[in-house]
Every structure is written in structure tokens, then in C-alpha cells.
């Protein structure tokens, strides 16, 4: 780790001001950023901790929308997101207790690891990512592996999840890291079904449009039988081939649907 300065403002405005510095970077749970700093792969001049900002913490529900503050930990979501059980379940599947007690939803979405869990929930729920300057639809937010629509110095303050009628998350773990080798989030709304898949694609989290159409017509695992995710854009690595991941997309989607229906 290289030396760095550390500030811990108590308001979003102060944090945004501190982030004007080119060398500054927001720090949330630190579960991604700190390991990369320890390996000297990342060297911010100033870490701006968001954890002193009360307004970024906590979960609230109104009008069928769950709003989760940007620095809410995975453990808090797992324990308190009762109104959206599939989301609470997903949070409880992330990493281990230490990671869940530190890691946050804002950090996870800003990082947009291609094997992370939250991006699947956000995309499948048609969530809105709220920042200090604007609101971004999940469909516009994720822009490929480790890439998002966030500008330099922009902070995720909250995420708004429209609560579906029913939803389910199926995570197939990569044997070493226990991130998602492939994972599928299926959310069923009055106006249709959304299916988002993480871990599988070279392009990061994506929606499986054919499955959404088929399931919106007939919500059953059988509705998927004629469908297949093409393997071309899938990841091949030590833990599985593109074909295997494409296959898992379908298996896990089917399981999510069966679990709901």
C-alpha cells in the first residue's frame, strides 16, 4: 500500500467537494478497494470515506419502492430488507460474514465486477441508481465489466428498487472466489418479467430478453425450453467454458422461475 490521505466527511456535499481532487477516490466498505491498494494496483492520493454520512445509510419502503442508502452493508440488507426477500437473500449470499459486515451496495454497484451479485438484482428490478447529481436507470447504468455511467467524483447515494410481485436469485458459485460463476435474478412485475444474468458475459451483467418475453407470456420453466443463450459473448476461464456458462444461464433461470411458481 502507498501512503494516502484520509478524510471522513459527514455530508454528501463535503464528500463531493473532497472528491474534486483528481487523486481522490470514494471509499465505502473497502472490500474491493483496500485489497487492490494493498497489492499496489491502486494508489489514490486521498480516500474519501463515505461511512460518516448518516444520510447514505439504511433501508426504507414507500409506494412499493425499496430505497437503500449507498453505504448500507450487505449484512444490513440481508437482515432488514424483509419487504424484498429475494434481495435480502442475495445480500446474504455475498462473500462471508466479514465481507457482508463491511461491503456496501454502493461500492458493489460502482465497482460493477462482472461476477458481482447486486448488479443482477438492480438490472432485473429495473432499479434506479441515485447519485448526488441525478437518477440513472439500471438499464443505462451498467456499461460492461467494471464500467458504469458514473462520472468522476459522482457518488451513489441510494438505490431504488421497485418491489416485484415475486423474485428469485440463483447463484452458482465459482469454486475458488465464491463470486458468481453465473447467477440469475428473475423478477416478476405486473407489467412483465425481467431476467438479469451476472458472472457469465464478457459484457458484464445483461438482460436475457428472449427469456423475459417468454416468461412474460407464460411464467413457467417450460416456457424456456426452446430458448438458449448464445455462447459467443460468454466468459471462458479456469472455472468454466463459454458453453458451460451459457448452459448455466438457462438452468439457473429455470430454477429461479420454478422457485417462484
Amino acid at each position: 500500500m502507498y501512503n494516502f490521505d484520509f478524510v471522513k466527511p459527514s455530508t454528501v456535499e463535503e464528500a463531493v467537494a473532497a472528491l474534486q481532487d483528481d487523486e481522490a477516490q470514494p471509499l465505502s466498505g473497502g472490500q474491493t478497494l483496500i485489497p487492490s491498494m494493498k497489492q499496489r494496483l491502486n494508489a489514490p492520493g486521498t480516500l474519501v470515506s463515505l461511512l460518516g454520512i448518516e444520510a447514505l445509510k439504511g433501508i426504507s419502503v414507500s409506494d412499493g419502492v425499496m430505497t437503500i442508502g449507498g453505504t448500507t452493508t450487505h449484512a444490513t440488507v440481508a437482515a432488514q430488507a424483509d419487504a424484498y426477500p429475494a434481495l435480502a437473500y442475495l445480500a446474504g449470499q455475498i462473500g462471508d460474514p466479514a465481507v457482508r459486515n463491511r461491503g456496501t451496495i454502493g461500492g458493489s454497484l460502482a465497482n460493477n465486477d462482472p461476477a458481482a451479485c447486486y448488479p443482477a438484482a438492480a438490472l432485473a428490478s429495473g432499479a434506479t441508481i441515485v447519485t448526488n447529481t441525478r437518477e440513472i436507470a439500471a438499464d443505462d447504468f451498467f456499461q460492461g465489466m467494471f464500467t458504469t455511467d458514473l462520472e468522476e467524483g459522482e457518488i451513489i447515494t441510494a438505490v431504488k428498487f421497485p418491489i416485484p410481485e415475486a423474485a428469485n436469485y440463483q447463484k452458482f458459485e465459482q469454486p475458488a472466489s465464491r463470486f458468481a460463476l453465473t447467477a440469475v435474478f428473475v423478477a416478476k412485475y405486473a407489467d412483465g418479467v425481467r431476467v438479469a444474468i451476472t458472472g457469465a458475459s464478457e459484457e458484464g451483467v445483461f438482460r436475457w430478453a428472449e427469456a423475459e418475453d417468454a416468461l412474460s407470456n407464460s411464467f413457467s420453466a417450460e416456457a424456456l425450453s426452446a430458448l438458449a443463450v448464445p455462447a459467443n459473448d460468454m466468459i471462458t476461464d479456469l472455472h468454466g467454458t463459454a458453453e458451460y456458462r451459457a448452459h448455466l444461464c438457462k438452468v439457473l433461470t429455470g430454477r429461479a422461475v420454478s422457485a417462484i411458481s
Binding site: 452458482f172 469454486p175 460463476l181 472455472h239 468454466g240 467454458t241 458453453e243 458451460y244 448452459h247
Partner: peptide
């Protein structure tokens, strides 16, 4: 014998 290998 990883899941991927068994499946393949």
C-alpha cells in the same frame, strides 16, 4: 473434477 468438467 469441477462442475464444468463433469458437465462437459
Amino acid at each position: 473434477v469441477t462442475p464444468a468438467k463433469v458437465w462437459a
